[in-house]
Write a protein that binds this DNA or RNA. Structure first.
Lengths: 266, 266
DNA sequence: AAGTGGTCTAGACCACGCG
DNA sequence: GCGTGGTCTAGACCACTTC
């Protein structure tokens, strides 16, 4: 393997992914053993294992002790009418859509100071008196609204990000908050806590997403933390239940708590 | 570290988890560096790293290059009115409930041969003519129904698992399919593909879960694969949207595709 | 017995954050 | 410059599966 400025194990991982997506390796097929891969790529075993672990994280491979490593059933069917988003890695909204052959767009529908609430100020670790910034976005797939974001920020950070978001919007580029953080430069997210749940659309959500009130929404609530464990953002993303779903692939034995036989939901 | 029949890195991981759950280590607090942990536990660095990676997978820790390793914000608040289930590892239904101080129960409401359908037989890799086994379960939390499972099996496997499930039910033990597979012994799951989405309850689901028709449900569809990549089970789990939610914690930089700046949903 | 993945050692150098 | 995590080497032994 030559240098490309990229780590060896990621280069090997990229090759796995490429072959699997191209169909050169088919689901269920066994790949060479770790020792064989060491020889093929002229690297040590731990490096090969790191590449394999990356692939397992994305559901591309799975392994069985004593038997071997196999190609997973991990290529999402493109015939699926819903937009499928992987859960193990964070994917850009626009990238997810592009894989489906759809065109993404992001529209800012609000950006304003609002008085704090107990719930949100607690999460953002702010005094109850402090104002916060609320940014509302709608994500479109081929001009259909599919997701509504309500993001709450501490005032200063929110103002900066809103400014950057407006620039992006003016250029017609779909954007993600991670890109905005990267451009802002000062505060970078290091940790995100997310919860997933199903709720019914209220009247505002229904109007924004052009669905009936009461229709099911897939809700992802995120708390984004910065380097010093300070909360940067609290966000709720409301996905149209009829258009969006999320995907995850996992390896048995589903490592469980000590002494507990794992299971459930399997 | 002494032997307990358990691998060193899991022993170290267990200690991390215990300390964090007990509150001896608080969110945001820095833990000793890898080299220090090597000395403390008298193990090599790679072993310490393996323990840390396990903890990161569960959202207990996060790390920042050049700075250190820190305790995550990973302890789910017990004040949350909804049942919170972690997504990174498979957890037993009864265990999730026990953490909330609730009592779990599983009830078999149907177990019957049905004619195959195109969708399900394709997934199970069966001929379109073949009959399949449908097992329906309801999971209760303190006598409230919170989840409905519809599981489809190839006929032979389904019959065996149903027999085992009925034994468990007779003893009043809540059970998970993973335990049933383990008892059956012949076929063990090695890979699970899951999708998550939000739908509205139909009349049967509403009746089983004692909610109104049209209420939001959180749906997890799973395809369980055995050792030879053969599908063992197709299952849909319908969770009451008002009672259940799921949680995941992730580390930046949210490793993305090559050349793509990661983001979205952050 | 042979081959697989699982765990583990004792080193090494690099990239990054901070003072 | 120093400490942190990130990557990597060249070995070793164990546990499990298959023959």
């Amino acid at each position: 393997m030559e240098h490309q400025g990229k780590s060896l194990y990621l280069q090997i991982f990229d090759e796995f992914r490429e072959r699997i997506y191209k169909g050169a390796l088919r689901p269920g097929e066994q790949i060479p053993s770790e020792r064989e891969l060491c020889e093929i790529y002229k690297v040590s075993r731990i490096t090969v294992r790191q590449a394999i672990y990356e692939a397992i994280k994305e559901g591309l491979l799975y392994r069985i002790q004593g038997k071997g490593t196999f190609v997973g059933n991990g290529t999402p069917g493109n015939s699926d009418p819903k937009i499928v988003q992987g859960l193990m890695k964070i994917t850009m909204f626009s990238e997810t859509l592009r894989n489906k052959g759809l065109k993404g767009k992001t529209k800012i529908i609000a950006g304003e100071n609002i008085p704090g609430s107990f719930e949100i100020n607690s999460i953002l670790n702010l005094g109850i008196e402090e104002e916060i910034m609320l940014i509302k976005l709608v994500g479109f797939a081929n001009d259909d609204p599919v997701v509504l974001y309500n993001s709450y920020f501490p005032l200063n950070l929110g103002l900066e990000l809103l400014r950057l978001a407006k620039e992006k919007e003016k250029k017609g580029e779909p954007f993600s908050s991670y890109e905005l953080y990267a451009q802002f430069g000062k505060e970078m997210p290091v940790l995100v806590d997310q919860t997933f749940e199903a709720t019914a659309a209220n009247s505002e959500q229904a109007q924004r997403l052009q669905i009936q009130e009461g229709c099911p929404l897939f809700v992802i609530s995120s708390v984004v933390y910065g380097a010093d464990n300070s909360p940067l953002e609290f966000k709720k993303a409301f996905y149209r239940g009829d258009r969006y779903k999320f995907r995850i692939s996992r390896q048995a034995p589903f490592t469980a708590l000590p002494g507990v036989v794992a299971g459930e939901q399997v």
